[in-house]
């Protein structure tokens, strides 16, 4: 909830200059802020991502003009941040890794109470030279989030890639096709429940020179 944001900020007296500026403009929309090894990241509700992105790009003090990366994380049965609640993931983590990696043999951990996916954006400002990471949680049963193509056109291919590999739909994307894999591919391969050795059904060749289908006799 956005109302819980201020306490987490008050706990951290050492805010980076960037986070002071970001908080001044976006405090009501930021769910929480974390810092690890000097990387600032903010968590935002997925309904607010377009508004946040617009402010980050247009504000002259922030001026995030370059969208470096869009990707997703599949926290299958894991909490949001590994550095916080270690005991939650420890047991499942071991179970998941020890078994063979075929999907039909793998005992996946129970789905946790947290939303399964997180969409991650990496930004940099080429004038102020500061970097920021944005995370939005996206639940499994409704994997949708607003597309950032109106703000940064460069999100186009990056979002297509995220759709291809994670199956997260970007609402308002002009051309949401698969980018690496073929259209008939079943599933999304970077999800944790897609095994590394899983096989795909063989597709009949259609196109120039294809053989006629055999007639029933």
């Amino acid at each position: 909830m956005s109302t819980e944001a201020p306490p987490s900020d008050a706990e951290k007296p050492q805010l980076s200059p960037l986070m002071v500026k970001v908080n001044a403009r976006l405090a009501p929309l930021i769910l929480e802020h974390r810092e690890f090894r000097g990387d600032d990241r903010i968590h935002v509700a997925r309904e607010n991502i377009l508004a946040v992105a617009g402010v980050l790009r247009d504000d002259p003090e922030l001026a995030f003009d370059l969208l470096l990366d869009v990707t997703a994380i599949d926290y299958y049965g894991q909490p949001d941040d590994f550095e916080l609640r270690r005991e939650v993931w420890d047991r499942d983590h071991v179970t998941m890794r020890r078994l063979p990696r075929r999907r039909n043999l793998m005992a996946l951990p129970e789905k946790g109470p947290h939303p399964r996916f997180a969409v991650v954006y990496h930004l940099i400002s080429t004038s102020h030279l500061h970097r920021l990471r944005i995370k939005c949680r996206v639940p499994e049963d409704d994997p949708r989030i607003a597309s950032l193509t109106p703000v940064w056109p460069g999100a186009n291919w990056l979002e297509r890639e995220t759709w291809d590999l994670y199956g997260i739909r970007f609402e308002g994307h002009p051309d949401l096709r698969r980018i690496y894999l073929y259209d008939e591919f079943e599933g999304h391969p970077l999800r944790k429940d897609y095994g590394k050795l899983d096989e795909q059904p063989i597709q009949a060749y259609v196109g120039p020179g294809a053989k006629e289908p055999r007639r029933p006799e």
Binding site: D69, T71, I73, Q78, F82, H93, R97, G154, W157
Partner: peptide, 26 residues
């Protein structure tokens, strides 16, 4: 750019390569 999410084990939970060719081709 390399984006690594670690759960504290020897394997990365998430490994991402931000590759320039991909963004340059778009």
């Amino acid at each position: 750019g390399f984006y690594i999410v670690s759960d504290g084990s020897g394997r990365a939970w998430k490994m991402r390569c931000r590759s320039p060719s991909f963004s340059n081709m778009s």
